[in-house]
Write a protein that binds this DNA or RNA. Structure first.
Length: 322
DNA sequence: TCTGGGGTCCTAGGACCC
DNA sequence: TCTGGGGTCCTAGGACCC
């Protein structure tokens, strides 16, 4: 576990001591629902100050807190208050706070959407709100248009969700623009699948959809996916699926060049154990368990796939006995 | 500035089934 | 035999987030 991960866990622990209603958003962001604590603990602003103090004293990190009636506005407030700040948006001052802000503050507005809005001379959240839903939908499509219209009026009915589980797990590797031989790409793929499948087994997850992510020489991207009938966290099975996808993409890679390979597994399930194990064991599950055990004890470099030998820094070709 | 790594959500078309 | 509607799943792409 990295120092960053350890600190993140410690901070989340402090959050959970304050309220059980904690929704992790990323390694360094979370929503806390403190609506029920007003009588017992005090107003949200006081709770926020206390959280900042505790994290500073116990984990020695600054945190920024945004307090508001909706998740969306709390996130905007914390974004405005960064770094190491606290901003409380009172219910009667929501739109006065929100409307002068630039459109980029809206959750879901990135460079593409911002550029489309700019073309219509829309620069602030207030201008988005005044534009009206129908005009936004015709400009940005139904999904984004309705979403932004609601946010611009601070309409965000989503509650804080506890215990949300990850929907996919993946790993990727950036490459130089020089040509790469199929064997080299295959070795990189094997290393990525190895990393992802191990993470899945550690987390007790298994998955059905293998996604191969490619970025070509011109930095455009493409994905190829394959879904199997039964969820697995078995390295051999996942690698077989990934290899099929890579083989099919090789002609295109050959033409356009490749600057990134990624593998992720989606359709994640909570049950990595195969119920019919005594009769139809996964071909590689025993091997995976043995490899995981060795790595748990001796570190992740202790064992590697033959296809990777001599490619990863720090991994030496072993001396074979005569 | 351009090009690191790990994710989420939405949309759309096609296949398939009833 | 053909047509139609509705639903689900899979695949692919795109935009966005930290």
């Amino acid at each position: 576990m990295s120092a960053y991960t350890a600190a993140s866990r410690a901070v989340f622990e402090i959050f959970r001591q304050t309220t059980p209603l904690v929704e992790g958003l990323s390694i360094d962001e979370a929503f806390l629902d403190v609506g029920g604590l007003r009588r017992l603990v005090g107003p949200p602003a006081e709770i926020a100050e206390r959280l900042r103090r505790e994290v500073r004293d116990r984990v020695h990190l600054p945190i920024t807190v945004g307090v508001a009636r909706t998740k969306f506005l709390a996130k905007v407030a914390s974004g405005v208050a960064k770094p190491d700040g606290l901003l409380v948006v009172a219910p009667d001052g929501e739109l006065a706070f929100l409307h002068p802000l630039p459109v980029e503050r809206l959750w879901g507005v990135g460079p593409v959407t911002a550029a489309k809005l700019r073309e219509r001379r829309i620069r602030t959240v207030g201008e988005v709100a005044r534009l009206g839903e129908a005009a936004l939908v015709s400009l940005l499509g139904a999904g984004t248009g309705r979403h932004l219209h609601a946010l611009a009026h601070n309409r965000d009915p989503r509650a804080v969700q506890v215990g949300r589980r990850r929907a996919s797990m993946g790993a990727q590797h950036a490459l130089s623009r020089t040509p790469h031989a199929p064997t080299e790409l295959d070795a990189i793929l094997a290393g990525l699948v190895d990393r992802v499948s191990r993470r899945m087994r550690t987390a007790g997850r298994s998955g059905r959809t293998v996604v191969l992510r490619l970025r070509f020489g011109d930095y455009t991207r493409a994905t190829r996916s394959h879904t199997v009938g039964k969820a697995t966290a078995d390295t051999t099975s996942l690698l077989a699926a990934a290899r099929t996808l890579l083989r099919a993409a090789l002609p295109e890679i050959d033409r356009r060049g490749v600057t990134l390979i990624g593998v992720s597994v989606g359709n994640l399930d909570d049950n990595p154990v195969q119920p019919e194990l005594p009769f139809q064991p996964d071909p590689g599950s025993d091997l995976d368990a043995a490899v995981d055990a060795v790595r748990d004890r001796f570190g992740s470099a202790a064992l590697t796939r033959a296809v990777l030998l001599g490619r990863e820094p720090g991994v030496e070709m072993p001396l074979l006995p005569d």
